[in-house]
Amino acid sequence: MARVEIEDVEVELFMRALQLRHGYDFSRYAPASFKRRVLNLAANAGCRTIIELTDRLLREDELVPQVIAGLSVPVSEMFRNPSVFRVLREDVLPVLASYPVINIWQAGCAFGQEVYSLAILLEEAGLYDRSQIFATDFSDAALVRAQEGIFPAREARSYSENYLAAGGKRSLADYYHARYEFMKFDERLKRNVTFANHNLVCDGVFCEAHLILCRNVLIYFTNTLQDHVLSLFRDSLVRNGFLCLGNRENIDFASAARDFSPVNARERVYRKNADAP
């Protein structure tokens, strides 16, 4: 019993140190997965205990990006849950097509798999040239990788299958060059993408968006932080703007959910209510 109680104290101290010394606030992250990440981080940094990691974190500023990268765990896929992208293609983009300029905010973009997925979707709908994608994450390391657009070739098969299941009109291979064990996505797909650091915990409205995509990020947040971020999304969306969350997210406990109505509840696609503040 004692051992795990000690770990919980250590996680708390680590979190406080990160906040007091470096300004990152993880106090409203869901505790169980946060603890697992901190334990992994300590093990990967060769520390025997979390306290040892905390000690280094206090004294070595250069460790901060590595810690943030470790806490961010940017696991993603292209066209993850293809049916969602089908709904975006068939039900959302035709509505967005009526705007002269389309702003899309992709929050928590990880290594960019969804950014390139979106760009391809817009390209095939003939809308990309009047679209602007704002891809944000709070991990600089993830943003660097997202801008590179390079993914392991072993993913090619599952990405292609997802792309086709999402209603892709060509072959995914038309959009990347395969080199050795990597695939690099066409530079042109980035022509209307802006990558930027944005922390959903403490940063404000980022742009005036017609569509916000934020999938599998709020699952890591407690109810209060989830509610805070949903309010931020509401304030960032145009009247009747769209919001797309991850496939298994539950917003029943957030009061800001009142300001959204489902377009497709199963696929977690919502629309901001016309009378929302």
């Binding site: 869901a30 169980a32 599998n216 699952i219």
Partner: peptide
């Protein structure tokens, strides 16, 4: 547990999900 997600139990007996490795 749903497909594709880790299922975690939080202290108060509530579920949370993650897509960590």
């Amino acid at each position: 547990a749903p497909s594709g997600y880790h299922l975690l139990l939080e202290r108060g007996g509530r579920f949370s999900l993650s897509i960590d490795e």
